[in-house]
Design a binder for these strands. Structure first.
Lengths: 346, 346
DNA sequence: GTCGCAAATGTAAACCTTTACATCCCAGTG
DNA sequence: CACTGGGATGTAAAGGTTTACATTTGCGAC
């Protein structure tokens, strides 16, 4: 049986109020009394019950982080950034994954209600209406890459559109015209934004992006691998593949290699996110840099801004820019390849 | 102001006890009453306050997971496995990282006390005495890859010794004699076990492992990269490099490539852990397979065994076997190279 | 119509804190 | 000496739930 504040008070010969005051620092307690109480606390190894404290203080010192998935380095980096930020405030993280399942999101949110002081939610797939219904009221909430025009919550969104557009332009600059893409699947905000960026870049240069060159993945290595195998079944291979994240690019590279293609001499490939491993694989992967761990940290810091009332009533909507990160997986191609342009447009 | 059980009771025209009974299923409540109460609950979106519940039930439905670090896919997989297992029981995860710092471990453990029903602790670096002092009493605790002979806690330990020995033997079988290793640093249980395995395998075949071929890393890509650069400064290059985890192997590969070496024709390399990305990089990485996510799941399941009293008083000490996973980053070498054997021994 | 019994429901204590308010004590003042 | 005021400490309520125990209800049997 764990000892309670009453035991400490008895043993120290004071009231529980005094013990509480000693515990919470501040209040005026005579130095001598304080020492006596502290001695007993240390002796008994007493630690206040967080549930009781939470009950009356309505404060848990924990922050909920709900992610769509836990596969791969992307989410791992988000967690790492969030954990570091949270530790600086003496807080802790309750992590959960939703697998993009509304039921699981609801369950996690229900669980977190009352257990956390704020929630950071990343849910690029499930649409906002379902989300908004289940979001606990009265808690600071930061939406990470969520599909919503609701300005009632703080939001942080990666500029997937701009990043993909920039990458596509880069590929076009290198002379590529037949550019296959591997998307993250339908209904996924991140994927859709990147798709929009790709199509816009193509259209801006008067190339009609061919639907036949758009392949669906789901952001996992294996899906990139499989998509690449499909791509290679095309009669005319594309000269470049733009995978909508690095994991899929890595999977695709494996598939390409298995078919005997050399990268980038036979085919160029690039990814998105710039996960840490991207610069280490070979060829090092050209990607769109996203400050992944910063994203986690930003969300947490935003939460603390709220918590400390520094920004009580203003919601912030941060748009995180990306940066093209050129490495060695893409190569400039010759005019001969450019002749394929017409086919693509057709 | 969040609604409480009292509000529900009033609105439904019943007592709080009845509401509580409806909430907790079981007890005998007339079907009609139950429906009425449920209707109000749904209407008000009422959810019980976990602090109050935890206070009286002494149960939090959360499990603490304290890891040494959050960098890289290894820990990410541990979390994923743990999260999946925990979700199956309707529980949730409180994740924290210690950076192998006793102060941080203590802080995290203090935080978790009263907030979790059990703790899974991975701490290959900090020695057990410090740990044991801070471990909350009366809570099921599973030690993951911790250095301890204390049989009072459940433990799960990867067979780093066996895995490294097997890998070393494999390299020897391929004809390698000058085998450089990249360790995970001093004082790290995982690294030490793998080192022991390597040395034992060498000694068993009557090769004296040369200290000059042992390079220190810290399990990160960059440290593998740097270690490999050092290795290449050797007058006689080793014919194989055994990195003590895959991240370092990946870093090392980059360094080797930068120096113009081809893998595996010029030099063989292998890792340890078999993180998901290992099979996708090129050349696909020969590694020692560790069921990483299973490790997380095993720890959690063990915790639940404890929690459900199924194994109240017996501690379990699980030794997780590893499995050699051969891919294309290592190659058989010719007898010519074998002539180097003497040098190595010397 | 009354009684008895079981099922359904209600009451209140307990869990452990924090904190507003009450009390006590003592020094300083008139 | 009586009184004031303020610092130190104590008392008790509140926070939201679960549950042992108490009470009510409903119904069949006599």
């Amino acid at each position: 049986m764990r000892s309670s504040i009453v035991d400490v008070a008895n043993k120290a010969g004071v009231s529980i109020a005094t013990v509480s005051r000693v515990l919470n620092g501040s209040d005026k307690v005579k130095a001598k009394t304080r020492e006596k109480v502290m001695a007993v606390i240390n002796e008994m190894k007493y630690a206040p019950n967080p549930a009781a404290r939470g009950l009356i203080m309505k404060k848990t010192e924990a922050i909920g982080l709900l992610l769509p998935d836990l596969h791969g380095e992307f989410f791992s980096e988000i967690i790492r950034g969030a954990d570091e930020a949270v530790q600086q405030h003496g807080y802790h993280l309750i992590v959960s994954s939703s697998h993009n399942d509304p039921k699981e999101i609801e369950a996690a949110l229900r669980f977190m209600r009352g257990r956390v002081d704020a929630i950071v939610l990343m849910s690029p797939q499930v649409n906002s209406e379902i989300l908004l219904e289940n979001l606990p009221k009265g808690l600071p909430i930061v939406l990470l890459n969520c599909r919503t025009d609701n300005t009632h919550y703080d939001t942080i969104v990666i500029d997937g559109f701009g990043g993909a557009k920039e990458m596509t332009n880069h590929l076009l600059d290198l002379g590529h015209r037949r550019i296959a893409i591997i998307t993250g699947g339908e209904n996924n905000l991140e994927s859709e934004e990147r798709l929009r960026g790709y199509r816009t870049a193509m259209a801006d240069r008067s190339f009609t992006p061919a639907r036949a060159l758009e392949f669906a993945g789901n952001f996992t290595e294996i899906s990139g691998y499989e998509a690449a195998k499909e791509i290679l079944k095309l009669k005319h291979h594309p000269t470049a593949i733009f995978a909508f994240n690095d994991s899929m690019a890595i999977g695709a590279i494996k598939a390409l290699r298995e078919e005997g293609l050399r990268i980038p001499s036979d085919i160029s490939i690039c990814g998105f996110d710039d996960i840490p491993v991207a610069k280490y694989i070979s060829p090092s992967l050209t990607s769109v840099h996203v400050p992944i761990s910063d994203l986690g940290a930003m969300a947490i810091n935003r939460v603390f801004d709220r918590l400390t009332m520094r920004s009580r009533d203003t919601t912030a909507h941060v748009f995180v820019p990306t940066k093209l990160c050129l490495r060695s997986s893409c190569k400039k191609i010759t005019l001969i390849s450019n002749l394929e342009k017409e086919e693509n447009v057709a």
